[in-house]
Amino acid sequence: MKLKQLSVALFTAATLTAGSNSKADTITTPEVITKTTSAFFNCADYEVVGVCFWLYCTITGCTVKTSAKVAHYNPEITTQTYRNAEKPPWVETRVMLDAMQAGHDGSLIGIILETMGSGLDELGGGAGSENKAASHSNMTFTLTDSFGNPVLLASKVIGSSGYVCDPQLTPMYPYYVSNLDTVAWRFSIPEMFYPQSLNPFGSLLGSNSYNWGGYYPRIGHVTNHDLVKESGLIAFRSAHFLSRRGESHVYTTIAQNSREGFWPPGPLTEHSGKWQQLAPKGETSCKTFPLSAGTGPSDGLSGYRSDDGAHVWNLWRRYKCCKDRGDFLYDIEW
């Protein structure tokens, strides 16, 4: 069975068997679906932006038909960030991740870690170590995985209406698993040599006065004291190369080509995508990163912070489309 078919099968089974309750540091597939759909009206920003013209021909002749050109945001991928490799927050992904990456001993990942001389005996992340009084490390390492949002299954059903744009992504498909991208994600090879990585002010997620850090190099190491900022930066870093082709990572791109009556979003930038937190805080709205200015418990972000470093986010991006009514001629956008 192909991986995409297996992903859909696992998604269906998980949805039917998972309970509706979960611990505070976990989330289930039914909860992902519920929280995603509850945010649709706030996040989709649905609007009619123009009209498409089609040439429709039969044996009796040809005529020009029209259809509305619509635009709205879609929940493309669901991204989880976490430190405990044995306990990703999205419960139903654990079986798939176990099957894909296995354990440290005897696995390909373990061989890579041993070859790189890492000395690690597990695949997880964590905070910096304080091995003596004069030693202090702000460096943390976070794992992340991105799956096609399960609600995409519904968009495939209703996308034929022409009034909903189908992203053509597969629900529950693992577009990125950071432990399968060990060389780049953990050891920053070759990301550390990129010009963007050498300029600490060239890729800030936010403004010069308030930001969550640089998204280059796009790796799992972050120097940050704040869990929600760390998680958001990690999620943005992975989505940044996921939305592009030919990047130096092990992943499946979510980039798509335009076609007649269908215009997908371009590569992700600081302002082109919107994020919705699913865990620990179940949001019903979307925002761009960084969420808000603040540095402490009174900054309004306390509910967004997980005690164990595990967070789950939806990435919403804007699509345009119109119903196919023949051979595409042209479109007008106002």
Rank of each mutant, 00 (worst) to 15 (best):
V228W: 06
D324M: 03
L233F: 07
A154P: 00
P264S: 06
E114Q: 15
G162R: 05
Y73P: 00
G294T: 04
E260R: 05
F11V: 03
A71Y: 03
S285Q: 14
Y175I: 01
A39R: 06
P280H: 07
S137Y: 10
F328N: 03
A133G: 15
L3A: 15
H240E: 05
G296Q: 07
G61F: 01
F40M: 11
W275A: 02
T140I: 13
Y163M: 11
V250Y: 05
A154E: 09
T81N: 09
C286M: 03
V183R: 05
N199C: 09
M96D: 05
S137H: 13
F328Y: 14
Q276V: 00
V157T: 08
D226L: 09
G126Y: 14
G106P: 09
K2W: 05
R237T: 06
G213M: 06
A39C: 04
D98K: 14
G50F: 09
N74Y: 02
T29K: 08
M100D: 04
I158F: 09
G119L: 09
K65I: 10
F141I: 07
A99Y: 15
S137Q: 15
K87D: 11
T15R: 05
W275H: 00
L153M: 10
R83A: 08
S298D: 09
I189E: 14
G19A: 15
P190A: 12
Q196V: 04
N179G: 07
G266E: 00
Q168I: 02
F53W: 13
T223S: 11
Y46F: 15
S238V: 14
A13Y: 11
L120H: 07
A102M: 11
S118W: 10
S248F: 13
T81K: 06
T144K: 07
W313D: 04
G261D: 01
K229M: 13
W185Q: 03
G119C: 11
Y304K: 01
G103D: 15
G128Q: 05
F11N: 07
A9D: 12
R237F: 02
Y215D: 01
N149C: 12
T223P: 01
K320N: 06
S238G: 02
S197T: 14
K4W: 13
T12S: 11
F11A: 07
G19S: 15
G273S: 06
S7Q: 10
C62E: 00
C286Q: 03
A279Q: 12
F147G: 02
D25V: 08
E114D: 15
Y215Q: 00
P171M: 02
E260M: 04
A235W: 01
A44Q: 09
P190N: 12
D324C: 04
A184G: 12
A134I: 15
A39Y: 03
W334R: 14
C57K: 13
C321A: 06
G106E: 14
P88A: 15
S20C: 06
L205M: 13
E191T: 06
G246D: 11
L180S: 09
W185M: 05
C165A: 12
L227K: 11
V228P: 01
A293D: 09
S107T: 11
R244P: 00
M192F: 02
